[in-house]
Design a protein around this nucleic acid. Sequence first.
DNA 1: CATATTTATGAAAGCGCTTTCATAAAGGTG
DNA 2: CACCTTTATGAAAGCGCTTTCATAAATATG
Lengths: 347, 347
Amino acid sequence: MKENITIKQIAQESNVSMATVSRYLNGTVTVSDEKRQQIEAVIAKYNFTPNTNARSLSLGRTMTLGIVIPDISNPYFYSLFLEIQKEATLNGYTILLYNTSFQQNRKEPEEEEYFQKLIQYRVDGVLVLGGQIDLASPSPSYLQALNRLGDSLPVVVMGHPIPESPCHFLDPENGSGVTTLFHYLYSLGHRNIAFIGGNAGVRITETRLAAYKKLLDLHRLDSQPDLVVLTDYYSQDGYQAALSLMEKSCPFTAVIAANDNVAIGAIRAFGDKGFSVPYDISIASCDHFSAGEYSIPRVTGIARDTYLLGRLLIDTLLQNIRGTSEDISIDFSSSLWEGESCRTLGK
Amino acid sequence: MKENITIKQIAQESNVSMATVSRYLNGTVTVSDEKRQQIEAVIAKYNFTPNTNARSLSLGRTMTLGIVIPDISNPYFYSLFLEIQKEATLNGYTILLYNTSFQQNRKEPEEEEYFQKLIQYRVDGVLVLGGQIDLASPSPSYLQALNRLGDSLPVVVMGHPIPESPCHFLDPENGSGVTTLFHYLYSLGHRNIAFIGGNAGVRITETRLAAYKKLLDLHRLDSQPDLVVLTDYYSQDGYQAALSLMEKSCPFTAVIAANDNVAIGAIRAFGDKGFSVPYDISIASCDHFSAGEYSIPRVTGIARDTYLLGRLLIDTLLQNIRGTSEDISIDFSSSLWEGESCRTLGK
DNA sequence: CATATTTATGAAAGCGCTTTCATAAAGGTG
DNA sequence: CACCTTTATGAAAGCGCTTTCATAAATATG
């Protein structure tokens, strides 16, 4: 292992001062040709790379952005992340990623620990994408930790705004996806539409559920509690939800699922019980991604524009860091991707 | 935004020296009750958190581990990551994650940049999981960057060993999965077995392909070049591969796919052309994960023990950091998970 | 050519923390 | 009780970098 070599040593060996080496490295000021060559030679000789910690300490700025994300393997979050990372890099920032594997019933306050760490690392800004913020009522200690974070740094949160918080909020879920799906299924003739969403108590679910109920109301349809099953976002959850839907005796011909994975799990469960999608049951997903394009049948669903959203998130944060805070609002384009999982009723 | 407060200010306001505050924070030495209380009060008042950069600088150690991973959304890598993160945290390390979104034909040398950054950040150790190292012949500049990384820090690489490298290598792929699948399909009566693997030129693919060819040989079966299609690891690749398999006139009754996603894409393609899995064609996956458990039909495949592997990787790195380097070798348990995508031939 | 301006450079202070060294106070020993 | 440990504390140096301030050299200006 090579011992760490410092600017000081580079300076000595190339017969210049530390200041000059530093200036050469940062290009802040022109260095004479002669010295530049000496310096370059010595740097190359030792493969020298400046110590970022020391630099940050001296600069009072780390050029690092923290991002706290509940489940990076979730395609929705992953695509947001990719866009954010790209934009951050272009602006000279390095990303410090914390994947919290947030699960509702988990005891460990992982997110709070990560908030604390981000403060300690003195990152220049933080992006919080979902997680406990999405719970209908986040724990007091979480809220305190988030506020403390917002007090120390520029923070942009993707989720429902919390009153009096020093953070900035951006809430892309307004139930419009459910509305689109509902109208679509309704126009195909479906009147008994079930809803298998994400976890109860989670904001996004509540919003979608509210939209769902409002639509039932609008169309003068009865709201059947038995047609609502809330679970989680994985295939196994869709599977379980579909089973429980079938156990109840309330009839239904169509299902709105929280995302593609849930829809795929449900298709599997229906199939296992002898029902076919879309012939017996239609199913559509609130959150389309590539998994739904290769399943059998392909899952019809709402494709959200993560490209735009990711960009908006990082841009907002960068603006915050630069102090030119300015509230933006954008209509998120989302479109219906049609597979074969829905079918006109009664044909 | 709160201005940053330092140990010095805490010390002044609680009438002790900086040294005492530092000692209190790190618990290195007992501090008298009286002073401790003063200090605690002032810290609470300001919500003070020590600056990690300064700490690292002074300590010459960052308690940070770098991990470079080609695609964290890939379930295989994600499960490795979760295990690694858990173990690292338990040992007091924070993870700096770089997702390279490595793609073979990409021009940008992302990985090399990240190696450089990790050196600059003076992380205490690095884990490189796949990526360009998996190419049959990584570029010279990549190798140089990797070696430079290994020269500066303890580095553990998951991938095929490179001679003379200062890094440690751990190569979990030996083709045994393909062997298991082949025997399984053979025992079901299949003799015309196709292989749709990951990218050509990638080590893991070559290893699996070599195993595949050796098995054909062993069973005295003809090796048909038309039955081998190399693409990538996503569903769309499986889809394309299956199409191209059907275009050729070489008959086959079974397919070994690189992973579940590829298998699912292939099933889709066969279906689109009027063939049913498993009735017309059997298909099995080298890398089983949950996606294959909910597809229709469920995909039979090799489940690799990522729990064990992740643990081995991080343990090896930690040992390296502690200087107690010791080569371990473990047999990776992998087991056959049976779905419904394979069927006895001719019944 | 004398003076004013620009440019290249170095010395040294400072970023926020840890730790060595020194010292004073407290406790233990025969 | 004199002496030796142990324990709690502070002063100050040092980690590797940036940057201000000062200075010397080079160039421009009238």
